[in-house]
Each structure stands twice: as C-alpha cells, then as structure tokens.
Computed example of a mutant assay.
Amino acid sequence: MKKIISVASAAVLALGVVACDGANENAMEDEGEQAAEVVNDQAEAMEDAGMISDDQADAMTDAAEDRADAMEETGEAMDEAAE
C-alpha cells in the first residue's frame, strides 16, 4: 500500500511541477526517482525474505528518497546557474 501511495503522490507532484522545472532538474529528478524505486523494490524483497525488518526497509527507502531529492536540488541549482 505504501508503494502505491508513494508512486501516486510522485506522479501527481511531477505533473504539477514539470512545467516550471528546467532540463537539468527534470533529468536529475527522473534519475533519482528511478534509483529510489530500485532501492524500494530491493528493500521490499529483503523484507519479504526475512533479511531485514519493516523499519529497516523503510529506512532504506527513506534514504534513497532523500538522495533523489538532493539530486533534484542539484539539477535545479544547475539550471539556475545557467540562466
């Protein structure tokens, strides 16, 4: 359920801000989101296999989402510097 909510929220947010984002920001955001999805899938698989707890899986996903946010901010700064 968390994954569905996360994906839906990300999709709505992306649609809302695409028009005002620069090319670098969009590219870095996409790359970060894809990487975060991979980590989320890995964390869920590890949790399902009993290798980690739910809290550990959540922490992995949160860290990946934080990295994705940082990548987006870096892209935004690159776009602003180019203006």
Results as ranks from 00 to 15, higher is better:
N24Y: 10
A8P: 05
G32L: 02
D66K: 08
E65P: 04
M60F: 04
A11Y: 05
D66F: 03
G22S: 08
A49G: 15
M46S: 13
Q56L: 07
L15S: 02
R67S: 11
E72F: 08
E72G: 02
I52E: 05
D79Y: 08
A59E: 14
T74C: 09
E83L: 09
A49W: 01
M71L: 14
M71F: 06
M51L: 14
E65Q: 10
A19E: 11
I52A: 08
A10F: 01
R67Q: 13
E76P: 07
N26M: 10
M1N: 13
D30C: 02
N26E: 11
D48H: 13
A35C: 12
K3C: 04
E33S: 08
M1R: 14
V12K: 05
D41N: 15
D41G: 11
M71T: 03
A8R: 04
M60D: 03
A77T: 10
D48E: 15
N26H: 14
A23W: 11
N24L: 05
S9I: 08
A36R: 00
I5H: 01
A11C: 15
K2H: 12
D62N: 07
A8Y: 01
A68S: 10
V17D: 03
V12L: 09
C20H: 14
E47W: 03
V18I: 15
Q56T: 06
D48L: 13
T61W: 08
G32H: 01
E65C: 06
D21Q: 12
A59R: 09
M28T: 03
E76G: 08
I5L: 04
E72M: 02
G50P: 06
C20S: 13
Q56H: 09
A35S: 14
D62I: 04
A19R: 14
L15Q: 02
D79V: 00
A49Y: 04
G16W: 14
V18T: 07
A23Q: 11
E47D: 11
Q34A: 10
D21W: 12
K3Q: 14
A10Q: 06
A35N: 06
E31T: 02
G16I: 03
T61I: 09
M71S: 11
D21A: 09
L13V: 03
A23F: 11
Q34H: 09
A77S: 15
S6Q: 08
G16E: 01
D48P: 07
A14K: 00
V7C: 12
E29V: 00
D41H: 09
V39F: 00
M51H: 10
M78C: 13
A19N: 14
E76T: 11
M60I: 05
A49N: 15
A10M: 05
A82R: 15
E31L: 15
V39H: 01
A36S: 07
M60P: 00
E72I: 00
S53N: 07
G75S: 08
D79A: 04
A11W: 04
A82T: 14
V38E: 13
S53T: 03
E80K: 07
V18H: 14
